[in-house]
């Protein structure tokens, strides 16, 4: 047996892969669930905070900035571990899943708020003045004039940041969630063969590589428009 054969036998073992494929697929489903929930909740909360901030109440804005800073400064894994081990929720079903979902949602909320806010403030004052001079209210101006322009600017950075944070779903394996990496890790220790891990790696590439390529495409497209 050549070295190459041994390598294939170890890392791409067909028998092992076949045996653990259902587990990995099940894990992929969990990964997709967490990722979907995080993206929807995180972006909505981030947008909501940015809109609240645009009202311009000083105490509220200081609070928003603090919360955003907090979740930008803390490592996601620290937040997950804190919620999972720290909060008194022993016995709650799927607590690891919930802890990961909440943690990554807060992180995406913080980063997306910054990006949404940057987009809103980059719209020239004249746009506000023109709209207000025709009688549009603050809210109408924000929704009809400012946000449509701001969102266009924010899409490329937002896409890249969302992908980077969503990749953090792998961290759920640390708090005993059976997503791809968690499933693969336990499969490796059960089978004493790393092939499940190889499958996990391929699984992540299938999930995230299209997103990364899409993000790059968006970036160049928007760059031309400018």
């Amino acid at each position: 047996m050549t070295n190459w054969d041994r390598f294939l036998e170890t890392f791409f073992n067909a028998k092992m892969m076949a045996r653990y494929l259902p587990d990995i697929l099940q894990g992929a489903l969990v990964t997709i669930q967490i990722a979907g929930l995080v993206i929807v909740c995180g972006l909505l909360l981030g947008l909501a905070l940015a809109l609240l901030r645009s009202i311009g109440l000083r105490p509220l804005n200081l609070l928003i900035v603090f919360v955003v800073d907090l979740f930008r400064a803390l490592p996601p894994l620290v937040i997950i571990v804190f919620i999972y081990f720290g909060l008194p929720a022993s016995g709650v079903k799927n607590w690891g899943f919930i802890a990961t979902w909440l943690s990554l949602t807060f992180v995406l909320m913080a980063f997306s708020e910054e990006i949404f806010w940057a987009g809103i403030t980059s719209i020239p004052k004249g746009q506000w003045e023109a709209a207000r001079s025709t009688g549009l209210s603050f809210g109408q101006t924000l929704i009809n004039v400012v946000l449509p322009q701001a969102l266009r600017l924010t899409i490329p950075p937002l896409t890249n940041r969302t992908i980077a944070i969503t990749k953090g779903t792998a961290l759920a394996s640390v708090v005993a969630v059976g997503e791809i990496l968690g499933m693969a890790s336990s499969a490796v220790s059960n089978s004493y063969n790393p092939s499940p891990l190889t499958m996990a790696a391929i699984g992540y590439l299938i999930l995230f590589l299209p997103l990364v390529v899409f993000g790059r495409w968006l970036e160049t497209r928007m760059a031309w428009k400018r």
Binding site: P124, E129, A131, T134, G135, L136
Partner: peptide, 27 residues
């Protein structure tokens, strides 16, 4: 009340994401 007071700005301040007609009809 602001509908009764039309204003025209030095820098136009048209909404770049709307057509000319969209700019005029929004308010």
């Amino acid at each position: 009340a602001r509908q009764r007071v039309g204003m025209v700005f030095q820098s136009f301040n048209l909404y770049p994401h709307m057509t000319a007609l969209g700019n005029v009809t929004l308010a």
